[in-house]
Nucleic acid binder design. Structure first.
Lengths: 193, 193
DNA sequence: TTCATTTCTTGTCCCAGTTCAATGCGCAAG
DNA sequence: CTTGCGCATTGAACTGGGACAAGAAATGAA
């Protein structure tokens, strides 16, 4: 039950069994049906979630009413709007929604604080997770600015090989920052060679 | 001398004077002339720098040989390629270059570790800095995907009011992800109304 | 002061990607 | 079985922004 998340959190920091026990005891297991919105724009994000099973998207709605997907999270990924909400004390600008039936481990900011007090080494583990998150976002910015739509799509397929089977095309288009129609045209062009 | 950086690091965590003394004692003060490259692509980034005075850009060179600026750092900002280099143990894909004569406080990853051992509360402060960094990058991704060039430029002016006087237009264009020529056209259009 | 180099502007042509249909295709619900 | 609806495809017309070129202005070095 806890092996996935323990493996994930131990990736850059080695923990004693007792520390992992404390960690696990603070986690809340939750199942959520598909198409559930976990966080609405304007709310405070009061959770961080680790995806045990399922698929989630994080998106905002731009000035013209278009959804733009910032992140997909599948098995063994973390999802939250930590960067805006927590510590900044600002309401979130994003939505978080399940795309499939999901299982999560979740915890609140308060629980996280409690964890840091009981087992301070987790502070470091979460700092490094944050750094990786930053690296991924920076990479995405890089791609968004300097690659063509076709290149972005091919890279997406490489990076998330299973996701293109699991989610609707127009979600992928939204993630890539292109129109659903144009993605369709790219796909037929690729298929024809 | 240390008041700027102490104010900055104390923004979300309150430190005792002794803790700040430890911190300050580990910092290395450095002046660097303009047009100096602090980090080359392919190197490991072995520093984090706090800008006391001056202006720095962080950029990469894309597949077509174009420079794309990821970040400007001016007074009271941090600059590093921490996300890719340190902990990931991968050579950096970015360059960091001074645009003006600069004064920095710098420290190495090893020094940072030493700091965390002597004064563990800094682990938290740097985690929160990292979160803010992530928030800014995510915001930039948001803007890059869903705003027009004109909107991006106007927002840039609001967000960095002094920078447009300090750096060349083509650097700003590069930051906004548009060509220098097109930025020039945007500027004349804006001026004419 | 002058010459050179870098930066900024302006015009023309062009293309990647958008917008707006229209059509077709599952698939779930009654 | 069929109605309805969300999703994908395709085409035609349009546009934001890029590429290139050539000149103007600013900066700076000797």
């Amino acid at each position: 039950m806890y092996s996935q998340i323990n493996k994930n959190i131990s990736r850059y920091v080695t923990f004693e069994p007792e520390e992992l026990e404390i960690f696990n005891s603070l986690l809340e297991y939750k199942t959520v049906p598909k198409k559930t919105i976990l966080l609405h724009e304007g709310e405070m994000c009061n959770f961080e979630a680790f995806v045990i099973k399922g698929c989630v998207r994080k998106y905002y709605i731009d000035a013209n009413g278009f959804e733009v997907i910032l992140q997909f999270a599948i098995e063994n990924a973390w999802i939250s709007d930590i960067s805006f909400s927590i510590y900044e004390d600002k309401p979130s600008r994003v939505f978080i929604e399940t795309l499939e039936d999901c299982e999560f481990f979740m915890f609140s900011p308060e629980t996280k604080e409690a964890l840091f007090i009981k087992a301070p080494k987790f502070e470091r583990a979460f700092r490094i997770l944050m750094q990786r998150n930053l690296a991924v976002t920076q990479d995405r910015l890089f791609n968004t600015i300097s690659k063509t739509a076709t290149e972005k799509y091919l890279e997406f397929l490489e990076h998330y090989p299973t996701l293109s089977q699991r989610v609707a095309q127009h979600y992928i288009a939204s993630y890539l920052g292109i129109s659903a129609e144009f993605l369709s045209k790219i796909r037929t062009k690729i298929a024809k060679q």
